[in-house]
Every structure is written in structure tokens, then in C-alpha cells.
Amino acid sequence: MDVIQTKSLTKTYDGKGGISDVTLSVGEGIVYGFLGPNGSGKSTFVRTLLGLLQPTGGEGYILGEPIGTTKSREQVGYLPELFRYPDWLTGKQLLESHAELCKIPARQRSRRIEEVIELVGMAGRETGRISGFSKGMSQRIGLACAILNDPKVIFLDEPTSALDPIGRKDVRDLMVYLRDQGKTVFLNSHLLYEVESVCDNVSIVHQGEIVAQGAWRELMMTEAQVEIVTAGTGAVQFPPFIKSWQKGNEEEGRTRWILQLEDERDIPKILHHLSSGKVDVHEVKPITPHLEDVFMHWVNRKKESAYVDNR
């Protein structure tokens, strides 16, 4: 069953901004990345799913329940991007209030609160007032809130924005832990490396529209490149299925080439072609594209298709 499902979900403000026509399905037990630059509509999408914003079009479901209903939020946890909690409460009191709202049985509350405090690395500091918390501590207590009710789906909106490198790693580990527990984590982020390191599936969102979605590994294969070092310094006859090539430096009688391929799976065919042409190959190294390049590739592709459509 899809944990999150939207069909042409739209939330615009007087026809502008927000998100448009977002259709996606998120399965169970995965970390799903919602990747896009600041202001691309990521938070608007999550806030619409959680009923904080009223959609202007389309429909959405969480665990089969229509968004906006209280039932759709029963098995949900959320860490907002702008995490603000009542600063007159202590961390523990905040969790107790949320436990009450989530209807966690009174007898289980203390144990569950202790568990989540431990999980987010706040043990020993939970009795302090939130007003005295650093941003990082507030974000950690927000994470504890998000997972307090043992939800099936957890929305994390830029969950590491206030954390130091150790904190970021902790959060990544937590996401993996939750996924291993069978939970679905919906991660909003503009940090490509964050998404890359934990996400199974990804949507790339730009200016309120999804420009690409699918398995992260597949999206990464935008333009396969391979670096080849051949013997000699003369010209080499490359096979016709190679999109383009560029000659690099010459060193110790060897030449370095950068080849642009349609598909990374063409590499063995290239080697076969070169060996048939009596070209000695010293080194073959697939080049992993820069994350920024992948992102821009999909954004540009969307722009190009929009341009063609408009014509």
C-alpha cells in the first residue's frame, strides 16, 4: 500500500507560487527524498499534506485517509522546518503534552518519552526549559516529538538545518534506523548529499513542480561519462554510439580522454571496439556526476520540454 499518495495536488496563492499538479506515490519502509532549492515549494507540499494549508486542487492521501482529516494524521510525525516550541515548557513537558494529544496511554508515556529522548541524544537535558535550548537542541527535541507516537510515516523538513556535523550524522542514522523499523520517512531537503546518503527514492522539485522522480540511482544516470587512458598520442577512432569526446592531457606517451555516453552500460562495447582497432587501453574509470549537475540536468530538461510545449 502507498503510504503517501497525491494526484495533481496543488496549492497556490492567487494562482502563483506554492506547488502545482504534484502526483506521487510513496511506498512503505523507505526514505523518500523531496529535493529542491529553497522556495521551490517543498514545505508547502508537506504542510498541505498535513492539513496546515488547504489545497487549491487535486487530492492526497496518507495511509489511505484523505488529507486534512484527523484520521490521516493519527500515524504521522512531523518536524517542521521552522521548528518553534513553547519556550515556557521543558523538553519533557513538551513531549508529555504531545503524548497526551497523541492519546498514548498514560502508563506507557514515561517509558516512551525516555526512549525517544535517548534516540535523539537529549538524555539528561530534557528537564531544561526550551527557552534555554540551543537551535540544535530544539531541533533534536522536535525530532523526539516527531517520532514520539511511533508513527508509520514521518515528515522531516530540513531536519539538519541547525545541527553540527555530528548531529547531522545522528539524524541520518536515525532515518536509517526508522526505515529499518519499517517506517516511511519523507525527507524535505535542499542538501543533495543528505538526500543521496539516505534516500531510496527521490522527487526533484523546482518552482513548485516535480521535474523528475524515481530511484535515486536511476536519476543519477543522467549523462554517463567515462575516463579512458589510451597508449600513444595520436587520434583514436571511437565508436559512433559515443555522444562526444574530449581529449585531455598527454603524459608519458599516453592520452587521457573523457567520453560522453548515452548509457554507462556501453563501456564494455567501447573497450571491445578499441581492442578491435588495436588501441591499447591503460585505464578505464566511470565518472560519477556531481550532484549539482544531476539536479541541474533535470531542471534544464524540464525547462526545455516546457519551452517546446509552449511553442
Binding site: R47, L52, T70, K71, R73, E74, K103
Partner: peptide
């Protein structure tokens, strides 16, 4: 935000 996302 965090209050209203609860089932109330």
C-alpha cells in the same frame, strides 16, 4: 504547526 498536525 506541531499542535495542529496531531489528530485533533
Amino acid at each position: 504547526d506541531t499542535w495542529l498536525m496531531r489528530p485533533i
